[in-house]
């Protein structure tokens, strides 16, 4: 579904990505793990056209995304839930969800998706008229995911959805990710919480300073000695 080939990204003189290859097949959960500054976020931001490529290509449904505007990429169903949730704090929850469907015209399906989101996140339903800024961190993450569902994603990319959340809520978020996947949405997940991510992932990539250093099925990486040492905190 998404094929990243030999992707290079430079920020000024700094090489953030040095030729990475990632394959996201239809219907799977793929995860990208690695430390701070490894280039995980840059990869996702390049995919939706928020940063310029210096080399390589990104193919989505066999179409090259180079030079295509973010809004058009989003309309094709390639959607990013950015790091730090980034809900529109000055808008109500209802309005945040409406904006998720901004570019869509299919009114009936929008309404159906809204019902779906409110079913997935009953907490949001109770607070529709409330400003998003008044929500707790976990609720904001739910709104960010709900808002992304309103864009009708085929491939949902999530940047650190568990960042800064209480352990119980983190568990909840990972369950929700699996549920969304079961609804037929392909997932590309970035996480520092490597263990939780690898547990639900079909396949994983490990990134270090702009390179993919290892890849394999989620379970395999979970049991890999190097991964354990570096990312799972198990000696």
């Amino acid at each position: 579904m998404l094929k990243i080939r030999d992707l290079h990204v430079n920020y000024g003189g700094i090489k953030a990505l040095k030729g990475i290859n990632i394959n996201v097949p239809d219907g799977k959960i793929i995860t990208l793990i690695g430390g701070n500054g490894a280039g995980k976020s840059t990869t996702l931001r390049a995919a939706v056209g928020l940063v310029k490529l210096s080399g390589g290509s990104i193919l989505y449904d066999n179409n090259d995304l180079t030079g295509i505007k973010t809004k058009d990429i989003v309309s094709k169903g390639l959607v990013l839930v950015p790091e730090g949730r980034r809900v529109f704090a000055n808008l109500t929850i209802h309005e945040n969800l409406v904006l998720g469907a901004y570019a869509r015209k299919d009114k009936l399906e929008i309404e159906r998706d809204r019902e779906k989101v409110l079913m997935l996140f009953p907490r949001l339903k109770e607070r529709l008229k409330q400003k998003a800024g008044t929500l707790s961190g976990g609720e904001q993450q739910m709104l960010a995911v709900g808002r992304a569902i309103m864009t009708k994603p085929k491939l949902l990319m999530m940047d650190e959805p568990s960042l800064g959340l209480a352990p119980l809520i983190v568990k909840n978020i990972f369950e929700i990710i699996q549920n969304i996947n079961k609804l037929g949405v392909t997932i590309l997940l970035i996480e520092q919480n490597a263990k939780a991510a690898l547990e639900i992932a079909d396949y994983g990539y490990v990134m270090e300073t702009g390179n993919i250093v290892m890849e394999g099925p989620g379970r395999e990486l979970l049991n890999n000695e190097d991964v354990k040492k570096a990312y799972l905190g198990i000696a």
């Binding site: 809004k71 989003v74 980034r86 998720g100």
Partner: peptide, 9 residues
């Protein structure tokens, strides 16, 4: 940026 990610022109 987030507005862009919602498909807003």
């Amino acid at each position: 940026e987030t507005a862009r990610l919602m498909g807003i022109d």
